[in-house]
Every structure is written in C-alpha cells, then in structure tokens.
Computed example of a mutant assay.
Amino acid sequence: MVRRNKPKQLSNGELEQFMKAAEALHHSITRPLISPQCDHYRSLQDLHEALLKAVREVTGRDAAFIRWFGAGSK
C-alpha cells in the first residue's frame, strides 16, 4: 500500500473554485428579503458569518465579493 503526501494548501485553481462557490453561497444567503425579526433571517445571518470566517481562514484575506457601502467588486 502506497501512502501519498497530500498537499497542505489548496492550489490556485482550487482556491479560485472555492471563491466562486463561496460567492454563489453568499448570493443565495443575502438575496432573500425577509423580516429581520424572523428565525430564518437570524439563521441566514449566522450562516453568512461562518462563510465569511471560512473564506478569511482559507484565503488569508476578506472576501472580495462583499460590497461595503457600494465599494468592492461584483
């Protein structure tokens, strides 16, 4: 049986795929316009925070697809 060393980091191509998937998830979380008082809204906010934290931990930087006050990329 052969053991192979697995890479310790994602490749550039894998990072690009990860960011595309994270951006798609971001849009699916933030698009629903629902009342901030409902349970679904709070759950989506928690999920969004976890997504942004994961992006920061995996890439070492904040998500480029987030727009604050109209700044940032699409």
Rank of each mutant, 00 (worst) to 15 (best):
E23Q: 12
A22W: 06
Q45P: 00
L10E: 00
H26E: 04
I29E: 05
V2A: 10
A71Q: 09
L52W: 03
K53R: 10
M1K: 12
S73G: 01
S73C: 02
W68Y: 06
P7H: 06
E57Y: 04
W68D: 09
R56T: 13
G70E: 04
R56G: 02
R61G: 02
Y41G: 07
S43A: 09
L33D: 12
L10T: 07
Q17M: 09
L33S: 12
R4I: 11
A64G: 01
L51D: 04
H27N: 14
G72W: 06
A50I: 01
V2H: 04
Q37V: 03
E14C: 03
A50F: 01
E49I: 06
K8A: 08
D62S: 10
Q45V: 13
Q37M: 09
L44V: 02
A21H: 03
S35Y: 02
E49D: 14
G13H: 01
H27R: 15
K74H: 10
A71C: 06
W68Q: 07
L47D: 14
P32N: 08
F65E: 02
R4Q: 11
K8S: 05
R67P: 00
A22S: 12
A24L: 11
F65L: 01
S11F: 13
S28M: 11
L47K: 10
Q45K: 13
R61N: 09
A24I: 10
A71V: 08
R31Q: 15
Q9I: 08
H27A: 05
V55N: 02
C38V: 10
N12A: 15
R4A: 15
R42P: 01
R61T: 07
E57S: 09
D39N: 07
L15K: 15
L15E: 05
F65W: 14
W68E: 13
T30L: 08
D39H: 04
Q45R: 12
T30E: 10
N12W: 05
Q9H: 15
P32Y: 08
F69C: 04
K53F: 11
R3D: 13
S43G: 07
D62N: 12
A71E: 07
H26G: 00
T59P: 02
F65S: 03
Q37N: 13
R56E: 15
A50H: 06
A54R: 07
D39S: 14
F18Y: 12
F18P: 05
A71S: 08
L33A: 08
S35Q: 10
C38F: 01
G72C: 11
L52F: 03
C38P: 00
N12S: 13
A24V: 10
T59M: 14
L51W: 04
A64S: 09
L25I: 09
A71W: 12
G60K: 01
Q9N: 02
G72N: 08
E14S: 03
A64L: 07
D46T: 11
Q45Y: 05
A71G: 01
L51A: 05
K8T: 11
R4K: 13
S43E: 15
R42Q: 14
L15P: 02
H26A: 01
P7F: 07
I66T: 08
E49L: 08
I66L: 09
G72E: 05
S11V: 06
K8L: 12
K20S: 13
